[in-house]
């Protein structure tokens, strides 16, 4: 299922992939060696070393899940949208389902890892998403005009969402007049 947010056009966070509550900018790694790779092979490199001793995979897993859960919670509050169950919540943004706005197939999750999904998302975060939903179901959201809070997010480091004076403009900022305001047309 695809949700489209019009409220913050042009920013990095402008389109959400429903299965993770994270933006659609591809994070997929270049996993396979590319043909014609000109970079040296690291196998016998002197830079090949483990710096701080063995890594506890279990602890990595736990910390990763905890941090991801934090990110998803933050995104839920930020966008009043539950990205786990894909449900709009009460808040500044009015979410509306949009039909037939399928993105190019190239944007859909695929790849050698995780059988069509990004790895790294624990199964609990993936529930309620069906593969075929990605093709032509979408949602758009609009900022409710009553909100006094500016929707912009600071691009700084973690935990700095407040107290910043400036923000980067993007080309779509100049399209305010074309925004359509939707008040309470919410669908689950």
């Amino acid at each position: 299922m695809r949700w489209h947010s019009k409220a913050q056009p042009g920013s990095v966070v402008s389109s959400f992939r429903g299965d993770q509550g994270l933006p659609c900018v591809s994070a997929a790694g270049t996993m396979s060696e590319q043909a014609g790779d000109v970079r040296p092979n690291p196998s016998s490199s002197k830079a090949r070393r483990c710096l701080f001793g063995p890594v506890d995979s279990e602890q990595l897993r736990r910390d990763c899940d905890a941090l991801m859960a934090g990110c998803i919670k933050e995104a839920r509050e930020r966008w009043n949208f539950d990205f786990v169950t894909e449900t709009p919540l009460e808040g500044d943004f009015a979410w509306e389902r949009v039909w037939g706005l399928g993105l190019p197939k190239i944007c859909l999750p695929k790849g050698p890892l995780g059988g069509g999904r990004r790895p790294g998302t624990s199964p609990a975060l993936l529930q309620g998403t069906a593969e075929e939903d990605h093709v032509d179901l979408s949602l758009s959201c609009t900022l409710m005009p009553h909100s006094g809070e500016r929707p912009e997010e600071s691009p700084g480091g973690p935990g700095d969402s407040e107290g910043r004076k400036r923000r980067q403009t993007s080309m779509t900022d100049f399209y305010h007049s074309k925004r359509r305001l939707i008040f309470s047309k919410r669908k689950p």
């Binding site: 994070a27 990763c64 790294g120």
Partner: peptide, 20 residues
Amino acid sequence: SIKPQELLEWELVVLGKLKW
């Protein structure tokens, strides 16, 4: 000492914390 899978999982964590 780390696996590619772990690297990709943490990639999402770092992206989230850097707010993309």
